[in-house]
């Protein structure tokens, strides 16, 4: 290409560019995949992005052991298999895994509680990266701490690998309920909210003024059916992450398509009824009370 009109002040890795990609993923479904074949099924079904990981959360839960970043070879193969954005998970606090993922050219890094944490005090300094980060949160304080560390997308955590939506609903209601309350808070109360949430005051003030999180707010953890996806969208999520729910169901391709259509038509019960028919078995679910490890408790 010629350099006839070089663009002035060309900058990569800015907040606008990082948050901008999250804007483009709104109203969509991001699917966990462990190999190129699953990635193609996800893209064929209409996923807006795929999340590359070595095992889906329900297998991590079953097998135990330390869960780490995926093999770079697998990430490369998944990148080559699809045209949509590819995300990948790094352990909480493991900034070297994040550096490796950035060098591989993944489009988003998920600093994820689904993997075994590498640091029990510190999250990754996400401002230091060109690649944008998504982080999980169970409440508004956690979300704002992640944003102050540079996260450009928040997903409510739910409880990954359970096929049980109850924790996702709890976390979404926590986060969005507090946002609604801050909208009514006077200046003195906003100081109190910042203390209570252990979050920076300017972010609390921004939420008071705009009535929303400064970055897109997606939902993850326990979505197993089209109705689950529509439920969290009606509650106020802007997109959904589906982990084990697709590839642990009896007909992944049909389930994936149905979740995509449910996420678009989330307010239309007649369409939801139509797309929920004949999908076979959803993934087997787990009662939260019986879990040995709650992944959502990871992150500080």
């Amino acid at each position: 290409m010629s350099n006839a009109s070089p663009a002035a002040g060309r900058e990569t890795g800015t907040q606008l560019v990082k948050r901008g990609l999250a804007e483009m993923l709104k109203g969509g479904v991001i699917m966990d995949v462990v190999d190129p074949e699953q990635a193609r099924v996800a893209e064929d079904a209409g996923a807006v992005a795929v999340m590359a990981l070595e095992r889906v959360p329900s297998d991590i839960r079953r097998d135990g052991g330390v869960a780490r970043m995926s093999d770079p070879e697998m990430i490369e193969a998944i990148k080559a298999a699809v045209t949509i954005p590819v995300m990948a998970k790094a352990r909480i606090g493991h900034f070297v895994e994040a550096q490796i993922l950035e060098s591989l050219g993944v489009d988003y890094v998920d600093e994820s509680e689904v993997l075994t944490p590498a640091d029990e005090t510190h999250h990754i300094d996400k401002w230091a990266f060109t690649v944008p980060f998504v982080c999980g949160a169970t409440n508004l304080g956690e979300a704002l701490r992640r944003i102050s560390e540079g996260a450009c997308m928040i997903r409510s955590k739910g409880e990954a690998g359970t096929g049980n939506i109850v924790e996702a609903v709890r976390h979404l209601r926590q986060i969005l309920g507090d946002i609604r309350k801050i909208g009514q808070a006077d200046p003195a109360e906003q100081f109190q909210w910042a203390k209570h949430l252990q979050a920076p005051l300017p972010l609390v003030q921004e939420i008071h003024d705009t009535g929303r999180l400064p970055v897109p707010m997606f939902c993850a953890g326990g979505i197993a059916t089209p109705a689950d996806a529509a439920l969290v969208m009606q509650l106020g999520a802007e997109s959904v992450f589906v982990g084990s729910g697709i590839f642990k169901s009896s007909d992944p391709s049909a389930m994936a398509k149905a979740v995509v259509e449910a996420t678009l038509n989330f307010r239309d019960p007649s369409i939801l009824a139509k797309v929920s028919r004949g999908l076979g078995k959803a993934m087997p679910g787990l009662e939260i009370g019986t879990l040995e490890t709650k992944l959502a408790d990871r992150g500080w």
Binding site: A7, A8, G9, E11, T12, G13, L21, G105, V106, D107
Partner: peptide
């Protein structure tokens, strides 16, 4: 599609 590259190549600039 994505002819300007992946996310790491995403940019902002002033254009005429």
């Amino acid at each position: 599609r994505n002819g300007f590259g992946r996310q790491r190549d995403s940019f902002e600039a002033d254009i005429t």
